[in-house]
Each structure stands twice: as structure tokens, then as C-alpha cells.
Amino acid sequence: MCGIAGYFTKSTDVAAPVGEVMMEMLTALECRGPDSAGVALYNTSSTNDSILQIKLSDDKPTRAVLDGVIANISQLSKPTAITTTGVYLRLAIDGSLDPATVISVIESVDSRVEVVSMGKRLEIIKQTGSPKRIDVDFHVSDFQGSHAIGHTRMSTESQVDLSHSQPFWAHSLDEIAIVHNGHITNYHKLRRQYEQQNIHFYTENDSEIIAVYVARGMSNGLSLEEVLEAALVDLDGSFSCLVSTASAMGFVKDPFAHKPLLFSETDEFVAVATEEIAFRPLIENDLNIREAGAREIRVWQN
């Protein structure tokens, strides 16, 4: 049992208070997942910089690791807007750099260092504990942008720490992030196949494979909708899964409709969440909220 939520505005001209809406939705879903909480936020800026969110350590980061990461990244591009919050280091670098190169340079500093997200629009913030805590620590409610997805986690199979929390970034150029409620039962089989192709896995969390799967599909030229169609064939188990890119958000529900997922669409926005309680902050809009069906796929694109 987890809680997932998504909020997508249909206009990118004006930045909307997506952080605030997402925090309210996640707070309502906290009872479904008290272990950890996280958000993937997409801004509307058109700068050429990429924002990096880097996990320095699992507990208290050391000065040496922080300095090491900054020194290494400086070899590629001079980092700006450097801030640290808890175990996170956030900075901006030249947006033309390839994620694979950036990741390998940064993560070579220490085995616990992980690039949690990288993108011109995307920023992922996640940690153990309640949704309220990520708001207190990272001021998520102040974030203005075009869309966001979020997750509250109740771990059933893998450990509870920052890296195993969701959303998962797909480590690709498309700024893909996913949140997932359910179990992928052919995870080990798929993971073996991917590892033979030298794809690195950061966690033992089955949901991570969905991010890898979507990124592979899209880098092979499939549209988001086509990837989600293919996922119905290739992924086994129960899944209500939300996927976002720099300009789109979509969901897929497994063929047996094992897991809940409700959605509502207006002319201005789309809201998706595990339970109706999460739509309360939007309730003044008199929404028509509907449970997604088995095999149902929806994609919204700006």
C-alpha cells in the first residue's frame, strides 16, 4: 500500500502553485505510506542550466564528500546556485552536459553519493518520514511550475531509506520520473536482463525498474503512450503507475486493476491520486472524479 499523486496544469505560460497542491495531496495520502515521502517537481523556466539534486550520504554528510563532489563537477562545468539541505546538495550546471557523464563524475566521489535528479525542469526531493517533513525541510509548497508527481511509501519488500524512496528518476535526458503503487513480480528477471546490458541499479526496490523501463523505451523512440502500452505486456504484477517527463504526465493501470487510481480532468488541469481524499484541496472545482479501469492509459502533453 502506497499513495501516489499527480497534478498537471495544461498551460506552461504561467507557473502554477504545483508544490502547494502536491503537498496537500500527499499529506492526505500519508496514512497510506508513512515510511517516506517524495515529489518530482517540474518548473516552467527556460534557462539552459540543469538543476542537480545530489544525495551526499545516508546520514550526516562529511565536508570531504561535499568538497569532492563540487571539485569533480567543476571539471565539467562551473556549478552555481549551490545550497545544501540535510543530506542534499543542490546546484546548477551547464544544461548541455550528458547525464551519464555527470553521474559518473559525481558518484565516483563516494559509494553513498547519488544523483537523485538532473534536469532543466525536473527536481526530485524525497526522504524518509512524513510529507510534512519534506515541506518543512525543502519548502516544497513554495514551488511554482507546470506539473508534479508525488509518493508516500509503505515499504513491503525493500528497505526504508532515501534511495529506496520514490519518485525514481530514470537517469536519462527526458527528465523522466515515476511513482508506483504495487508490485512488479517479474522484477528479478527484468533486472537480470538490464544488468546484462550494463544498466546500474541503485536499489532493491522493484519500482526502480519502471523508471529504467520507461527510459529505455523512450530512448528507443517510443512515445510515452507507446511505452505505457508496452508496459502492460512486459511488466507483471500489480501496478498503478504515474510517469512524468519535462512536458507530459501519464498513467498506466495493470490488467487486473489491482491497485486504486482515480483521476479527474478539467480544462485547466489534471489531478490523479490513489484516493479521493487527496483531491480535497481541489474540491472547490466540483470535479468529476473517476476510478481508472484495468489497462487504462492516459497521457497529457503540453
Partner: peptide
């Protein structure tokens, strides 16, 4: 008066359930 989620009316032994919108799986 609206929609119902999955398993509406599961295992009922009597009575009437009316969904004036759509109902979910099962």
C-alpha cells in the same frame, strides 16, 4: 449520486445498491 470505486457491492446478501455514475472493477 457520483461514481463508485472497485468492488462496489462485493458479497452483498441482499438490499439494493444504486450507482448513478460509473462503477469500477469487480
Amino acid at each position: 449520486e457520483g461514481n463508485a470505486g472497485n468492488s462496489a457491492g462485493a458479497a452483498i446478501r441482499g438490499g439494493t445498491l444504486v450507482v448513478q455514475g460509473d462503477s469500477g472493477a469487480r
